[in-house]
Design a protein around this nucleic acid. Structure first.
Length: 433
RNA sequence: GUGGGAGUAGCUCAGCUGGAUAGAGCACCAGGUUGUGGUCCUGGGGGCCGCGGGUUCGAAUCCCGUCUCUCACCCCA
């Protein structure tokens, strides 16, 4: 028979990788909860229309679509925000606002895999729905940074680049751009940091043929600090600039201002974002964005609900893991074995199994050998299974119901009565005993 | 979808310009060691050399195709 390979762009999670994944996700969940978010989930597939209605028909080539036996067009979820919007819309009138929810969905996208991008991955999402104040945006950004900080990434390692689409829109229209031109200009802006200056200029000429408007826009693109932005903003954009200023002030109050910077280049692709947008990068700018998000005040309406404002972000596991590995900050959620129970005499085999199971019944993890082996071999197994203690049943068990407990790290051992051990398995090596 | 690089043991790789039963380290299994593990020593299992075709007396090695991985472009919700 032929060996079947894993599907392109997918990963197998052997226990070692699974421990890493669990550690990352445990961190996401813990930080979500301490910031006041509740967990939700949605189906792993949805009607294809949920995505086309939000993103247009082009999206179909970038996701895994299928038909069920009834001919319904379905798709494996490439993101969870549309599902969230669907769920919120269904209960919009009974949910207390703001809704603060998070999820850690498994997502699939039919893209060509490359560094930091796979076809199947996990993405931490948090969203705040039903509040349009800068406080909600600030708390969203804070939550992302709160996690990154919790795993040891400092403001020298990562940076949250923040801008505002509504601010840009107001400013660009003041300069003479039409609302229809905005998306083109956003795409151009998005390219600026990625292209050589010459190529960029050529692209600018192509996208904005009219020289007067183009020059004014290119001048706007030159703004590289919030101070300059504030100083040169036209009256029509002042209100949005003030919102950004409030946001930066709140991030200062929250204690994460050093992680944040204004960057006019952040526009977030062809997304549904309407206001504040942000992306978190490694300071070395070697990797793709770690995290991206912003305000999307129209999505619920686009998906058949009322106009309700929302803000949030997504953080994928792939780039995050690469960066944490590079910075030597990766840990694992591996669970150590508490006890490895050993029989030093053949006739104690059943009692060994019984003792292990009694330990399990008291909430400890315990293992034993399936094969009758010499004591040395069993200790070797205890060692390779990373047991903290070995519990040896031997002649002393037969003679006087005593067992020997060996601390595998120090090699120290004590012999005590079996009932006493079972009464407090974790107390044998506690201080003072 | 477009282009570059790479495919030899579970992993990391060696195998020079074609030459005999394809190797090393790590990992795994067993023994040395029937009441004391990690170290050490010895042995063992494991390979259609990605796949298909071609050149040749002879191909892991050269040529063509194909698949997969990877990096970049497009895109990036």
């Amino acid at each position: 028979m032929e060996k079947i390979a894993p599907v392109r762009g997918t990963r197998d999670f052997y226990p070692e990788q699974m421990a890493v994944r669990n550690w990352i996700m445990d961190g996401w969940r813990a930080v979500s909860r301490r910031n006041g978010f509740e967990e939700y989930d949605a189906p792993i597939f949805e009607y294809l229309q949920l995505y086309t209605q939000k993103s247009g028909e082009e999206i179909v080539s970038q996701l895994f679509a299928m038909q069920d036996r009834g001919g319904r067009d379905l798709a494996i979820r490439p993101e969870i925000t549309p599902s969230l919007a669907r769920m919120i819309n269904q209960q919009i009138h009974s949910l207390p606002r703001p809704v603060k929810w998070f999820s850690v969905p498994r997502l699939c996208r039919a893209e060509r895999p490359q560094k930091g991008r796979l076809r199947e991955f996990f993405q931490w999402n948090i969203d705040i729905i039903g509040d349009d104040s800068p406080l909600a945006d600030a708390e969203s950004i804070f939550t992302a940074i709160d996690y990154l900080r919790s795993v040891g990434l400092t403001s020298r390692d990562v940076v949250a680049k923040i801008s505002s689409r509504s601010m840009l829109a107001a400013w660009l229209q003041e300069l003479g751009a039409t609302p229809q031109e905005l998306d083109t200009i956003y795409a151009l802006l998005d390219k600026r940091a990625k292209l050589p200056e010459e190529t960029f200029q050529a692209l600018a000429v192509e996208k904005i043929p009219e020289a007067g408007l183009r020059n004014k826009i290119l001048e706007l693109f030159q703004i590289d600090s919030f101070e300059k932005l504030k100083a040169s903003a036209p009256p029509a954009a002042q209100e949005e600039v003030a919102r950004l200023e409030t946001l930066f002030h709140l991030l200062e109050v929250m204690g994460v201002r050093d992680y944040c910077t204004f960057d006019i280049h952040i526009v977030r692709g062809l997304a549904y974002y309407t206001g504040v947008v942000f992306e978190v990068f490694d300071r070395g700018a070697e990797l793709r964005a770690l995290c991206g998000g912003g305000r999307y005040d129209n999505l619920l309406k686009v998906l058949g609900g009322p106009k309700v404002s929302a803000t949030g972000f997504g953080m994928g596991d792939v780039v995050l893991e690469i960066l944490l590995r590079e910075k030597n900050l990766l840990q694992t959620a591996a669970v150590p074995l508490d006890f490895y129970v050993i029989d030093a005499a053949a006739e104690l085999g059943e009692q060994t199994v019984q003792t292990a199971c009694q330990l399990r019944g008291r909430g400890f993890s315990a293992a034993f050998s399936y094969k009758r082996l010499p004591l040395g071999k069993q200790l070797k197994q205890a060692s390779s299974q990373k047991a903290r203690f070995a519990v040896i049943l031997g002649q002393e068990t037969i003679d006087s119901r005593q067992v020997t407990i060996k601390d595998m790290a120090s090699g120290l051992q004590k012999t005590i009565a079996l009932p006493e051990f079972l009464a407090g398995p974790d107390k044998v090596f506690a201080a003072g005993t």
